[in-house]
Amino acid sequence: MTDPTALPDLPLPEQRQAAIGHDGARGAILAQLAEGRLPGAIMFHGPEGIGKATLAFELAVAILTATGDEDAHRVSEQVAAFSHPNLSVLRRRPKDARSYYSVIRVEDVRELREALHHTRGRAGHRIAILDSIDDCNPNAANALLKTLEEPPADTTFFLISHRPGQLLPTIRSRCHNLALRPLPDDLVASVVTTSLPDLDRTALERAIQLAGGRPRRAFETLALAENSPVGALVLWLRRPDAAPVAAHLQLADALGSDPQGADMSFAREILNDWLATEMREAAMEPGARRRLASATELWEKAGALLAEADSVNLDMKQTLVVLFDAIRKHCALIANPAEPE
């Protein structure tokens, strides 16, 4: 089972099987395993690239070992090779030799459901990992819901979600939900240096600065040129209202020059994260009605601008100019409110 999101030359989650951090979630599931009360479905949700799938495979090895009749080393080898008969993994399937389907399809979920209702291939619990459930189209999500409502005996589903708010509420309600958070910088560094022990210190520090607690993003950063405008975007977002207008015009010009390039793709992730954080903080701040209203308007405007640019191939430079100007105005508003809230 290939991974459509795999990064070149880096081990996959099923090969790592040892997530760094996330001790609370790990401890909770291992305690339930020891007490013999594993949930039928567990959802790990949180930002993409923080180790959710790696943790799921790590726990799959622990569960298959504890409930089966083989030692951990043998089980780990089989999980890495997808040869353990009690393990099923569902990802977006290859469409041809060079591409993948854009979604997990209903027929993929039905195949999984049929496989889980067959006689198990070996003693012990069965594990099904969906990486990620966000990729399910509506028909696939409904088919999965039926399976979660009537799950096979002694089977645990691990559902990986980067955007749980977009899932069917009935799916979330069938799961034991565990939120995983971005990692502190020292743990991001540990993940990166485990795979790249000879990495230059300067490159490591730059990767950590841009990672935002996501090891995957740190690896992606290493593929960017040293003079990438992404670093300038991160610095600008710290105080957009304090920077001169020329700064965001230069950013828009540098990022928008290649709308399909790695820099722009990375920049969109960073912008989405910044907007989501601003929404969350505004919602949690007592009495911050004006900030929340402005953040909500900004979120909607950003989504509409980028979607329109994608759908009708608008000039990305101009789209970014409008978006950056809206961000500056929002930050100026909350820094200098015209009237008390």
Rank of each mutant, 00 (worst) to 15 (best):
V89L: 09
V89Q: 03
L90F: 13
L90Y: 00
R91C: 04
R92L: 12
R92Q: 14
R93H: 11
R98C: 01
R98E: 13
R98W: 08
R98Q: 06
S99K: 13
Y100H: 08
S102G: 10
V103Y: 12
I104L: 09
I104H: 04
I104F: 07
R105K: 15
E107G: 01
E107D: 15
V109D: 10
R110W: 07
R110L: 15
R110H: 15
A115D: 11
H117F: 13
H118N: 13
H118E: 08
H118M: 11
R120K: 15
R120P: 07
R120L: 03
G121N: 11
R122G: 15
A123L: 03
A128T: 12
A128I: 03
I129K: 04
L130H: 00
L130N: 03
D131G: 05
I133Q: 11
D134L: 01
D135T: 03
D135V: 14
N137Q: 11
N137I: 12
N139F: 14
A140N: 06
N142Q: 15
K146I: 01
K146E: 10
T147G: 13
L148A: 05
L148P: 05
E149T: 01
E149N: 14
E150Q: 04
P152W: 13
D154C: 12
T155H: 08
T155M: 03
T156Y: 04
F157A: 06
